[in-house]
Nucleic acid binder design. Structure first.
Lengths: 222, 222
DNA sequence: TTTTTCCTAGGTATAAATACCTAGAAAATA
DNA sequence: TATTTTCTAGGTATTTATACCTAGGAAAAA
């Protein structure tokens, strides 16, 4: 049996220094919790974990270099014992699907209060899962059960090629150009795009772009 | 002459409770500063200002109901004495143009450190303007001088109709449907869209969507 | 091994977008 | 008032996208 720990160790991963320090400040009000580190992107995160593993990782979903979702998968695979609380500003089904299927333990929104943050930490500390009440309002029970049935996100149902083509579609290329980029016939591009439209039940590329951006499949870079 | 005030009064406007409280926490470390209120959206902001005006308004650029930019214009028009520090997560030229031409006094990024926040407040308190060093790295001097010459954002050069059409284009409609929505000939829609493409030097609607989303002309709703 | 899925790409046809024109009426501006 | 801009919309032509087909080879799964 393990001796009871003095602190519950927490690592903060968020690319916004201000937010990170704000959260650290909030957490520091509770003497039972201890922030053992902060990282600003996915690379730093993995680097940090090589030497030290926190009990809880509070992770922003939109980080540079490694998206929050990918980070969840990687961290859970490498260090299954580390609990992960996703912290996001997106009230979005797809983010939720992504995060949960990737293995997150909790899902908190920045719209939530600081009390909610401490509650989320407490629940995860107790081995339970946590879902933001702000989010659960919008999620009907069937959606909750859907994720429990390991339903994957729409993006994950895409094939490799379809994902490649989707990214190029979002960049506004024509079939001809995309064909040149991928060394394929423009007709093949047409085929993949048609499949994308069919799979998502959409009518045109603009809808695809909106969908992809909205659901975080692509990051609209500066 | 006014008596020197005990506190520098600050109002926080941000739709994310967690961020808001984090900033309040950071500010509270400085006894010369006092957060006199928090609001979560543009309506609350204007309502609050009816009764009390802070010396400084710290404003997130992406708020519901009233965008940060619009809020700056309204607040500066109604209460010119209120200084405004924009707090944004977007490292983006257009946001900067928007904010500055709308009358913001400072532009801070969430990537910046808390020391930077206090520095920004200090500078504005002293009647100076503030620009995030994180941002200024990316902004060449000519860009800085450009905004000083009251150069407006690309979006502001659009006509009313063009903005309407742009919004519909972003929603993925065909010319035919857009014509029905606006009670215009699809040919007229084509004309406006062609002007949009020409004005922004772009080739297709997907590019327009990316541009509009990236620059905050439209808000990709959930 | 059989079956299925994926990737490839062509045929054909229609719909839509885009690129050039012209041009008049209304509105804003000088 | 005169000028410019905006909004309207049509003509024409080309390019692109989209919707259906077929179909063979490769890869993965059953």
């Amino acid at each position: 049996m393990e001796a009871k720990q003095r602190y519950y160790t927490i690592l903060l991963a968020d690319d916004h220094t201000l937010i990170r320090h704000g959260i650290r400040n909030l957490i520091s009000n509770n003497p039972a919790l201890k922030v053992i580190g902060e990282v600003g992107d996915g690379e730093e995160l993995l680097e940090f974990l090589k030497t030290t593993q926190p009990e809880l990782l509070i992770l922003d979903i939109s980080m540079p270099k490694l998206t929050g979702i990918e980070a969840v998968s990687r961290v859970k695979k490498l260090y299954p014992a580390v609990k992960i609380l996703m912290l996001t500003m997106h009230k979005n089904k797809q983010y939720f699907y992504h995060a949960m299927s990737a293995g997150a333990d909790g899902y908190l929104m920045k719209e939530d209060s600081d009390e909610e943050l401490l509650l989320a930490i407490k629940r995860i500390q107790d081995g339970k899962s946590y879902l933001s009440p702000f989010l659960s309002q919008d999620f009907a029970d069937d959606v909750i059960s859907a994720y429990r049935n390991n339903r994957s996100s729409p993006f994950e149902t895409l094939t490799k090629r379809e994902r490649e083509v989707l990214n190029l579609v979002v960049e506004g290329h024509t079939s001809k150009v995309m064909g040149e980029i991928l060394c394929l016939s423009p007709r093949t591009i047409d085929h993949h795009r048609a499949n994308l439209l069919r799979k998502f039940d959409m009518k045109n590329s603009v809808d695809l772009v909106n969908f992809a951006v909205r659901n975080g499949f692509v990051t609209p870079s500066d």
